[in-house]
Design a protein around this nucleic acid. Structure first.
Lengths: 410, 410
DNA sequence: ATAACTTATTAAATTATTTTATTAATGAAT
DNA sequence: ATTCATTAATAAAATAATTTAATAAGTTAT
């Protein structure tokens, strides 16, 4: 009896040929996952395999239900080829993006199409057991209300800020009060396999796979929110570092100030250039009696949210725009530093603050010109995230797909 | 007639099987290059190929003169296996490491063994035509005096500081006064294929392949000299960035000072934390009448070299040690920043300043603890370069070998 | 010494893959 | 409408690789 793909990738002692076939199938799936659909000829060229070989791999994958024949497609003349691609409904993935004051949830099919999603579901991320249980509750509710039967959901990806050990499923910044890894704990509450990921990294991956990235291979994604996170893509792969703590851009020491950062250190970039700092600066100005749209809306300074400031800026509030430009300049100096180190092809501005577009983009651009070597920064494009609020959810789903298909390191 | 390996890697339209065989041979060579010698069984396990297949690949490579049978070796019992490895004298590589005040030259065989070398050959790197011609002259002299016939030298690797476009052979910081790439110009003077590389990157690669690196895959190498350069190894591959300008660590903007850096910007790390800065600080102290070993040696402040200060420190000169600790603290803060961004497994201190060992290592370590997240910096080892002055030469040779065998991206 | 065991090498058989040839499908030109 | 040019898919043949088996070579234990 022949094994299915899933049996094959989990089998202990594969014989030489079987092992190679599994790898070839992974490559085929990976090509579909990254590029969408493809003809047999295209796959043959890409993977350096003959047409009959590709045909047999594809047929196996069709029998396993992972791949579908999507029918004929136009050609440059001559007989039309069949195109094949991932079978959209062979499985679904749930992505949960946990933010400071809300949660985004989304469900994608096998072809990374967002089937159903909830944006900005109210949730206050607090580091205690109740908050964790509330999170599980929200997930369970979403699953029970979603149009897809639970057993078709193959995995759940959860994004949290801070230090995450992706491989082991531990979170060190939130919910670290059990001996078991957090992923296992949520798994036992929900009944579906759970993978944790750092929020910025998941957003970077989402943006990389279906956002603003075209051919660029060395890409930095900045998550500008209350904190400043970064996802690093090198040679089209997410970069983790030794334990998955890479990209702690918000905590690089660049200022000589006395502000104690959330991380416990002084002088972190976040202390003056992130959403926290923006809110603090804004509050100070409010207390000094500055006039702004915020006062008209009767928001008490102690309840001021980053979102309020962003909304004010969208409505041309002068103070909001001024202060955003101020942190933009500091973020830009930080990006200049990254450009000197990475010589990246593309830097993406994401996170809630990136929705202010030109207000934050222009000061960043001028700071980059001021502080980085021109020969180097000429190489680097600067773009604003295309997926916006959805980047995290989509990235989470795609990472689960990769993990389950074992496509990580192709 | 069957083709040799070199004919095969350069052939235009390889048929499927031939193409795969070339790739397999590259993998075999790459394994030998990285790991040294190997038995057929080891290679089979590593590359997932059968014994007869490996045997035939090895036999082809032996026929091409690239691989040698090195005879029997001990086993855990049973018949002793033959080990195979790169044929040491099938070709030689010349590495030239151009420093500010001297040149290091070395010749390695195919097995990365240094056959002959000259350290600290006097040469003043100046950005003019005469300096370039002098460089070519020195290379030609070395070749004519070296024990290996010129035609056996398959390629030359030259390390220069500053921006290098490795792929195209352009140097932008030095000798950029012709339209043709610098590599072509030197090639025409010497008559052997020339590859340029950024000095810090070549040193990093040397250290990575035959220095202090064991299993670590994400490694940062710092070249602490007059300037501060960095070579980045990610997943055991040199990281270049879009055009090969990555690693400009010396020019990240971190200070609020008015010192104009060599690069034209203000506030670069180099302006206060590199050899240039150390020399300036030392001169200042000398002019203030400080007593130090340097004054005893009758070195005029205007002729003071970084080397003099390093020598003084080796001889326990208090001022030298004090000032080295001062820049060490600043370098350490920079490294803390890198650790937050990269979460590397290993940071290597190289370059001339690293020879001061503890004098620079201790302030760096304490700054790292002070300025980086402890969860992250716990992952990172800090080591001093093992190859020292030879890192650049060995790295240059190894990179030429990779380039010629097309092993770059295996 | 010899048996038992481990490992390498070689050879033969089997299986897999690629090549080549053939047939099918399609659009454009005659 | 039929033929031609082009490309795709399939089938058959040829080649290549792996697996299995057999043999040879070296170790260790009895």
């Amino acid at each position: 009896m022949t094994k299915t793909f899933f049996e094959e990738i989990n089998s202990e002692n594969p014989t030489g040929v079987a092992f190679k076939n599994v790898n070839l199938k992974k490559k085929v799936l990976s090509y579909f996952a990254n590029t969408g659909n493809a003809t047999i000829a295209e796959l043959g060229k890409e993977l350096n395999l003959s047409v009959p070989k590709i045909t047999s791999l594809i047929n196996d994958l069709i029998n396993d239900g992972l791949v579908q024949d999507h029918g004929k497609v136009d050609s440059t003349g001559g007989r039309k080829p069949n195109v094949y691609g991932l079978a959209p409904d062979s499985g679904f993935f749930l992505g949960i993006d946990v933010k400071t004051h809300h949660i985004n949830i989304g469900l994608t099919d096998f072809q990374k199409k967002l089937i159903s999603s909830v944006e900005k579901y109210p949730y206050k991320l607090t580091n205690n057991q109740e908050s964790l249980e509330e999170l599980c509750q929200i997930i369970n509710n979403f699953i029970s209300e979603c149009p897809i039967p639970k057993e078709k959901i193959l995995g759940i990806g959860i994004n949290l800020s801070g230090r995450i050990n992706y491989a082991k499923g531990y979170s060190y910044s939130f919910f670290h009060f059990h001996e078991d890894p957090l992923s296992k704990i949520i798994e036992s509450h929900v009944g579906i396999k759970v993978f944790l990921e750092n929020d910025s990294r998941a957003m970077a991956y989402g943006e990389f796979c279906s956002g603003v990235v075209n051919q660029e291979k060395d890409v930095l994604f900045l998550n500008l929110d209350y904190g400043i996170g970064m996802g690093i893509m090198i040679n089209s792969q997410l970069y983790y570092g030794k334990s998955g703590y890479s990209g702690e851009f918000g905590h690089i020491p660049v200022f000589r100030n006395e502000i104690i950062c959330k991380c416990g250190k002084k002088g972190c970039l976040e202390t003056e250039a992130a959403g926290w700092a923006l809110v603090e600066m804004f509050k100070e100005r409010l207390n000094e009696g500055a006039s702004t749209l915020i006062t008209r809306e009767n928001i008490a300074p102690e309840n001021l949210l980053l979102e309020d400031i962003i909304n004010a800026a969208h409505n041309d509030d002068v103070l909001a725009i001024e202060l955003i430009a101020k942190i933009g300049e500091k973020i830009g100096k930080g990006i200049a530093l990254l450009i000197n180190i990475f010589n990246p092809e593309l830097v993406i501005l994401g996170g809630s603050l990136s929705s202010t577009e030109e207000y934050i983009l222009l000061p960043i651009k001028s700071a980059i010109n001021k502080y980085s070597l021109s020969l180097v920064n000429n190489d680097t494009q600067l773009k604003v995230s295309k997926l916006g609020e959805q980047a995290g959810v989509i990235g989470a789903c795609l990472l689960v797909r990769n993990k389950l298909l074992a496509l990580e390191h192709i």
